[in-house]
């Protein structure tokens, strides 16, 4: 995903020095073994903590490997067959997709609104607004869930108290099958919107002011300037943010696990696919089965990313 050039280079950022000499590498003098020593430390870590578990996981998915016993035996495709017939896999995958569907639009739209509202603010109040919107993102997930569990508390919590003042009866947010996932989604929007906000803010500040000046001289009003300068120039950033956000939402686990005390909520209404991987692996102790589901999840992430890149690049071609 990083293959994108950085579209949010801020104007006040120190400019990287431009290369004055041709970038081509000359001669054999430069070719040396030194580079190998420089990449070695990272390569070792990469091999041990990424490649190894990736291969071990794939291998384990064809075995009955378990945390409960020492040795394991090859079982062929049985984990995979079991997985495709396991309703809990599909149910948790659905929870994950549903969460993604209800969190991506607000996380993009509110971030954009916040950036548009604040990018012309003066230094002092701009500082305050940036702080308010972004501070939650800096809080550890357990702090976020502690605060929100207390806010959702049915008898003494803030949310039901606020609802009562406008005459709406209280709701058991985290113990209701229909409300638990939306409640977690709301918490997530509050917690993480600040990140997308900063990306939008940087993109807005990267739009050169002379574009607006020229348009204004040509008699374009504020709305016209917004629709014909800001919106098209933010398209790339929006593509990137939507992509990042979808992948981030598909990785739901931490807050869902903590806000349901690891139970997955009533009837597993808030158990995402990673939650089921976690359960199969660490509660059920079945490493082989959990690895198979991990690979299914990996495939989902890749497919969604590729589809989206395709979709967006076609749109950009058409524009």
């Amino acid at each position: 995903m990083t293959v994108h050039a950085n579209p949010t280079e801020t104007p006040d950022a120190a400019p990287a020095p431009r290369s004055s000499s041709p970038p081509a590498v000359s001669g054999t003098a430069r070719r040396s073994a030194a580079g190998i020593w420089f990449v070695l430390p990272f390569t070792v870590l990469f091999a041990v903590f990424l490649i190894w578990p990736l291969i071990a996981g794939l291998w384990a998915s064809f075995t009955d490997r378990s945390l409960a016993k020492e040795d394991s035996s090859f079982v062929g495709l049985s984990n995979w067959v079991e997985m495709f017939g396991d309703p809990a896999v599909w149910q948790s995958l659905w929870v994950t997709l549903l969460f993604t569907l209800i969190t991506v639009p607000p996380l993009v739209a509110i971030a954009l609104a916040m950036a548009l509202l604040t990018h012309r603010a003066t230094a002092r109040i701009g500082w305050f607004l940036r702080f308010s919107y972004f501070a939650p993102f800096l809080m550890p997930v357990a702090v976020v869930t502690l605060i929100w569990e207390w806010m959702y508390q049915p008898e003494f919590g803030m949310i039901n108290d606020l609802l009562a003042t406008v005459g709406i009866p209280g709701v058991s947010w985290l113990t209701g099958e229909d409300t638990v996932l939306p409640a977690i989604a709301l918490t997530t929007v509050w917690w993480t919107v600040g990140f997308n906000y900063l990306l939008y803010l940087a993109a807005l500040q990267g739009i050169p002011a002379y574009l607006y000046e020229a348009a204004a001289l040509d008699g374009a009003g504020a709305w016209r300037r917004f629709t014909s300068i800001t919106v098209p120039l933010l398209r790339r950033t929006t593509t990137l943010i939507v992509l990042l956000q979808m992948v981030a939402s598909l990785k739901l686990f931490d807050q869902a696990y903590l806000m349901t005390n690891g139970s997955g909520g009533p009837n597993y209404a808030a158990r995402p696919i990673i939650g089921y991987i976690f359960e199969s692996g660490f509660t059920g102790l079945r490493i082989g089965y959990a690895s198979a589901i991990s690979y299914l999840f990996f495939a989902v992430i890749i497919v969604v990313s590729v589809l989206q890149l395709r979709l967006f690049s076609r749109k950009e071609d058409a524009a």
Binding site: M1, T2, F46, F49, L50, W52, P53, L54, A56, G57, A60, R65, L67, V247, K251, F253, I274, I277, F278, G281, F282, I287, A290, S291, S294, Y295, F297, F298, I301, I302, S305
Partner: peptide, 16 residues
Amino acid sequence: GILVPPQVLIVPLFDE
């Protein structure tokens, strides 16, 4: 390697 979500590795990583 950027494309590999760390969550995918959790179970085999713990084993390792």
